[in-house]
Computed example of a mutant assay.
Amino acid sequence: MITQPGKFIVIEGLEGAGKSSAIALVNDLIEQHTGQAPVCTREPGGTPLAEKIRDLVKIGDDSDPLCDEAECLLIYAARAQLIANVIKPALAKGQWVLGDRHNLSSLAYQGGGRGLMPLVTAVSDACLSGFTPDFTLYLDIEPRLGLTRAADRGKLDRIEQQAIDFFERARQTYLQLALQDDTIVVIDASQSMEKVHQDIRHQLMNRLPLLQSKD
């Protein structure tokens, strides 16, 4: 019996968009639909080495500030590890993978936010070789609202402490890329959690049969 490849679903969004609760919901929906819990990952991170890289990116060091280019390259190093050692092996076994962020984050944050789109595009092409998620839910929120929500959770990390203009540029990049890719669906994350989850459930349940029909 030949195992059909699994599917790769990603949740994206700015800080405070509600990714954690959305991931919990999508995890349950995938398990109900397929009969198997998905493999859950996060970026940067998801492997022992990639988690160490995550700490370098998330925790600031005033004595040796991380430059924008180094940030970009570190994130792609972590992503390459995750794809090679977790995501692709799981998909090859027929398992579904649910990702907390993927390449769209780099395009938005490092490409749009940092203004490094040529570097991001070049490194993305080299590292990913066309590998993309089957479906992405982008939780859209106005940056000031999102950061207020994030601050309510506790101390902000190095990325979350960036200027508001950084997040405005990242958001616009997210929205522009979503318009160009029919595998990306935009959810209004400024709504109540109940309404956000209702929209996610509707979008995902409409897509799951289509994803499986591609096997």
Rank of each mutant, 00 (worst) to 15 (best):
D157N: 07
L175N: 03
I87H: 01
A24Q: 15
I23N: 03
P48W: 11
T121D: 09
R144G: 14
A22I: 09
K155S: 14
A151M: 15
P65L: 07
G94M: 08
V86H: 07
G154N: 06
Q81C: 12
R54T: 04
P133K: 01
T148L: 13
D100V: 11
M193Y: 09
Q4K: 15
S190C: 12
L156W: 05
R144I: 12
R149P: 06
H202E: 15
L179N: 13
L145C: 11
I83R: 12
G18F: 04
G111E: 03
V123L: 00
L204E: 03
T41N: 06
Q172N: 14
Q4F: 14
L66T: 05
W96Y: 07
A122L: 08
R144T: 13
V123M: 01
R171M: 01
F8V: 09
I53A: 04
K19I: 07
E69S: 13
R149W: 05
Q162N: 14
G154K: 06
D55E: 15
P48G: 05
A90V: 04
S63T: 15
P5V: 10
E194C: 10
F166H: 08
S213M: 13
D61G: 06
A78Q: 03
P5W: 02
V57Y: 04
K93F: 04
G13P: 06
L208I: 11
P143A: 03
P209D: 08
L107T: 09
L91V: 06
A77W: 03
L128S: 08
Y138N: 12
Q81V: 12
G60P: 02
I141Y: 00
L147T: 08
I187T: 06
L147G: 02
P89M: 04
A50M: 07
T3V: 15
Q198P: 05
S63P: 05
I30P: 02
P65M: 05
L175V: 09
R54D: 01
S192H: 01
V196S: 00
E160D: 15
S21W: 02
S129D: 15
A70N: 11
V186N: 03
V186Q: 01
G113A: 06
T34M: 08
I187L: 07
V10Q: 04
E15V: 10
A70Q: 11
H197C: 08
N27L: 11
P38T: 03
Q176V: 12
K58A: 05
T148D: 14
D199Q: 13
M193H: 11
E142R: 09
P38W: 02
E71M: 00
Q81P: 09
R144K: 14
D157R: 01
F8G: 10
L29M: 14
S105V: 04
L177R: 08
L91M: 09
T47F: 01
S213F: 06
T121Q: 13
Y138I: 12
L29R: 10
L137W: 04
G99Y: 01
L49V: 13
L211R: 01
R171E: 01
L204Q: 02
L98E: 06
D62S: 14
I23V: 13
F166S: 05
E142N: 12
D64H: 15
L177K: 02
P118A: 03
